[in-house]
Amino acid sequence: MHPAPSVILFTVLSGLGFGFLAALGLGIVQPAGWAAFALWGLGYGLAVGGLLASTTHLGRPDRAWRAFSQWRSSWLSREGIAAVATLLMLAPVALSDWLGLGWSRWPGIIGAVLALATIGTTSMIYAQLKTVPRWNHWTTPAQFFAFALAGGAMLAGQGAWAVILLVILAASLVAHWYFGDRRFAEVGATMGSATGLGALGAVSVFDPAHTAGNYLLREMIYVVGRKHVAKLRVLALVLACLIPGLILLAVAHPMATAAAVLTHLIGAFAARWLFFAQAEHVVGLYYGKR
């Protein structure tokens, strides 16, 4: 699948944002005054920034509001609703923290649950697709939750929890790669089943359907950059999990936390790039490519 920068930015940033908003909503950190403004602002900034980035990959962003209508069948629609509901639900808590109004924290707890639901719906947009076997697996939601929770805990300054969650994140990434590498074969789609000619003999491409590119080849049959996969996987693990974990274990200081989060983000971008670039869509079978 084509690793579109807008979608990588969106999933990484809003995942981190919603993870952090959940922590703030639960009151794991309870900042006051301008510190509250800064922290809540960071959470909202990440979540909203990511959502805005995602609209840039639409063909008709002017109609994006229509995406709230199909919650009964569509995970993408549910995601939009969950995201907006989270942001609205948490707003009074953020306001109360900032201005010291002392309002009830209940909306914060509901908002935290909604934030987690948002992360779940984002992951299901990918995990539901039978056509992309690598994504169509429980390790996809596991990875998205682990990223959001570990990132949220780091931003909330929960050193010990963050380290535990980073270990879980590393495990979820390794599991996603381990199972992912086997998924396509497991699902069993082949050029033989795609063309239905497999019963007659071995199928191969004789003549391509078109000699120039098209939407399918650009969007779903992305085969660039796969040869560096092994190196990128190591890089993603080291940057997203290992180094931030070591920093947090060694120093407990806001600057150290910032360094850990930034390193983690770079690793997260690498991991998310791999998530897309490595995912093979079954339509590639018609073109003799995967």
Binding site: G59, R60, R63, I125, Y215, E219, M220, V283
Partner: peptide, 27 residues
């Protein structure tokens, strides 16, 4: 008139039957 050109339907189709039009921005 309602399509936002998100492309998710083309991802969901195993057969490559949907193409997003580059000019109209709709499926």
């Amino acid at each position: 008139d309602a399509c936002i050109g998100c492309g998710l339907c083309a991802w969901a189709c195993p057969y490559g039957a949907r193409e997003l039009d580059a000019v109209a921005g709709v499926m």
